[in-house]
Every structure is written in C-alpha cells, then in structure tokens.
Write a protein that binds this DNA or RNA. Structure first.
Lengths: 207, 207
DNA sequence: GTGTTTAACTTAACGGTGTTAACCAAGAGG
DNA sequence: CCTCTTGGTTAACACCGTTAAGTTAAACAC
C-alpha cells in the first residue's frame, strides 16, 4: 500500500507519531517498530526519511529547542530591568522543563554517548537561549547591579544550576519532605543573591 | 562447567566484570551477555544472583554511593569552619563526579523511568552525604554566617546546582569557549555568595 | 499504447538485547 | 544406592535497530 492511513506526508506523520509516543510512554520505550505500528507502515519505511533513530530523535530535539527559545525570547522582551528579566528568564526555563518533561529529557538528559553525535553546529542554535541571559547579565554588570566576572561563564553556571534543579525534579530524586515550589524558589533566590552586587543586595534586604 | 574461570564467588565476579565493563565501555553498552562472556559463564547464570539487570546496576549504584559518602565524610572531618567545610564538601562532590563519570552516570543520570524502581529505602542511605551539608549549613546559620531559611532545602538546591554543573560537564554540553575549571569555580563562588549573609559577604569582599 | 525507469514502500533477515522455562551434572544425606 | 539440592547449562521468546533485496504503482519516452 502507498501512503497508508490518514493524509499528510509520511515524514510528517512519523514525526507526529514519534512525538506522541515520546510524550505518552517516555523516551525509553520509543522504538522504530512502535512508531511504524502507530502509523501503519513498515519499520523500514522510516529509514526513507531519517538516516536512523538518532536522526529522528535529533529532529524532535530541534523542535524542543525552537519551542524553548521562543518562550525565552518572548519572556525577555517583556522586561526592561535586568534583574527582573534575568529572574523571569530563569523561571521560564524551569517552567519549560517541568511542563515538557519528555522534550526536556531528550534535549538535556540523554546519555552523553548518544548525544555526542548531535551535530555541534546545532548546539549553537540551542545556545541562543543562553545568549539572552548573557546579554542581560552583561547589561546589569555595566550598571553595577551584578558583581560578576565573565557573563558567559556566569550565565552557564546559572543555567547548569537550573538544569540540575529541573533534572532532579523530573527524576523525582528530591527528598519527599521538600516542597518542589520551595525548592525552585530557593534555587532561584540563591542564584540571584549569588550574582547581585553586595550593596544592591543590602539595599534589597533593608527595604 | 562449574565455576568456570578464576576463583571467587560467581556473584562477586559478576559485579567485578560489570563494574569493569561499565568503566571501560560506558553504561549504554553494558549487557548481561557481555558480562557473562567476560567471566566465561552463561548469561542466565547472572539471574541466579540478581533478579534482573536493574538489580545488578542498583548494586553498582550502592557501591558508588558508599564511595561518595566516604569521601564526603572524610572531607567534612577535616574542616571546622562551616564556610570552609561547606566549600570543601561542594568541591569534593564535583571532584567525585568528574573522576568517576561512569559511577556518577548510573547514580544520578539514569533515566527516571529506570530509576523509579530503585528502592526508596536506599535513597535514604544515598542522602547521607546531603546530611553533611545540611548540618554544616545549620551550624553556620546559628552563627549568623549563612542567611538561609531551611537548611535542608538550601542544601538540596546547592546539590542540584552542583549536579547540573557535573552533568553538563560530563555530557560535554558546555560551550567549548568556557574553561571547565573556571566554570566550576564560578558555580561554587556563586553558590557561596548566595548563601552567605550579606554583612559577612561585604566583610569578605573588603579584606 | 507499450516499454522502461523511478519513487515509495514492503518482506525477510542479521545480530543484538533482557528474560524465562526446562534441563542436567555433581555432591550431600539418608 | 537412591533421592534431593545446589549451581549451573541450553533453547527459546519477544523485542530491538538496521540492511538488503524485492515489489508495486505511477511517470515518462517513443
């Protein structure tokens, strides 16, 4: 049979089925054969449109990065004050991870070995979100609000911290006695206090 | 053949081979059949000593947690000043992760679905390391050195931040222009500034 | 209108995986 | 000497990603 099932190019339908399966059953049980079964084609048909499973997953990862970046860009455009903007960006990142756990997992939590094949050229696109934080940090530093050395390194360190928080949250590795909201709040406030200039911090604390 | 190959109980030899394979080839290519081949027994023999592959990996994870805790406990015993001790604990954690990437991966970076089966009772043992940080934070808070609310939550947030740093480092997801040492240094200094009381911070900055 | 090419897809198969069921050989106890 | 238990084995099932070869239908040349 040719183009079995509903309409739309097979490539598009493969991606839709893959994303659906990913969300429904998680990355671990995502298999070529299941995808094929879901759309009523043979497993090998997928290889006409994707070099292999990794390539397919990478396409999903691209989708995820685009989604995340659009959220961050929109958020960044809403705030003028560097401190407010930075905090908003951070919160939005965490929100994205918690709301899209399956995307987040394939984007950031896949095994290193598997991800080394993810083309480095695409990493640059993926880092556009970080650039928003870097610019904000740089801007605030010029105004004497942030006491940091290298904005790029600081932004990366903060990103790593948020990633760790999201990762542990998604993996449910936190002590059950800890409230997730409290945990996130503490993470962000600690980071913020870590980058703010001491005098600004005192000023904030006094009022 | 009975008890093929060298001496030692088969159970012990399975664990040794598994750990060796894990370190040599990474978690992804760790398979029951490979372990069996390495020690010259049949794949099914492993099931006489471990319920399944997960149970085997969990035993390796236990080893890892014991190793990590011993390092942290030894480190904690070497420093009296809470600030110094906290920083030393944090550095030691990062060092463990970077020196034992395979252990770190199965301990903290395995897929959530797989890890949910890891018995919650064992998590408590795994958290003993965190208790060291909690106690240190509590101690420093009583002395007015740390401006934090809940030591348990703060310790968890800091742990998450360090985990994120290690995870991104091991997964080689950092911008290539960023020096890993610089990155770690910034992470730890930011965290420290985030938990220190503002006046202590100013005092530190002035001298 | 017929012959040929090409695009889209299929079936069969290879080598790998975790895991289970059934079997077997050697030693221990009566 | 016979039975039971211990500590393994072999064979098999159902899955996986991937490749090679085959098929079928549409498109095009003449």
């Amino acid at each position: 049979m040719v183009n079995a099932g509903s309409d739309g190019t097979l490539r598009r339908r493969i991606l839709d089925a893959a994303r659906h399966l990913l969300v429904a059953e998680g990355y671990n049980s995502l298999s070529m054969r299941k995808i094929a079964r879901a759309i009523g084609c043979s497993p090998t048909a997928i290889y006409l449109y994707f070099q292999n499973k990794d390539a397919l997953v990478h396409t999903l990862i691209d989708e995820g990065f685009r989604l995340l970046y659009e959220e961050l860009r929109e958020e960044a455009g809403r705030h003028d004050d560097p401190v407010v903007r930075l905090e908003a960006l951070w919160r939005r990142y965490v929100r994205f991870g918690r709301r899209n756990p399956e995307y987040y997992e394939i984007m950031f939590m896949l095994h290193p070995e598997r991800m080394e094949r993810y083309p480095p050229e695409k990493y640059r696109r993926a880092r556009r979100g970080l650039e928003l934080a870097i610019q904000t940090l740089e801007e605030g530093r010029r105004q004497g609000i942030f006491a940091i050395e290298d904005p790029r390194v600081t932004a990366s360190a903060a990103w790593a911290a948020l990633h760790g928080a999201v990762a542990l949250l998604l993996a449910r590795r936190l002590d059950i006695r800890i409230d997730p909201e409290d945990f996130i709040e503490t993470t962000i406030r600690t980071l913020l206090r870590g980058v703010l200039a001491p005098d600004v911090l005192l000023q904030l604390a006094s009022k």
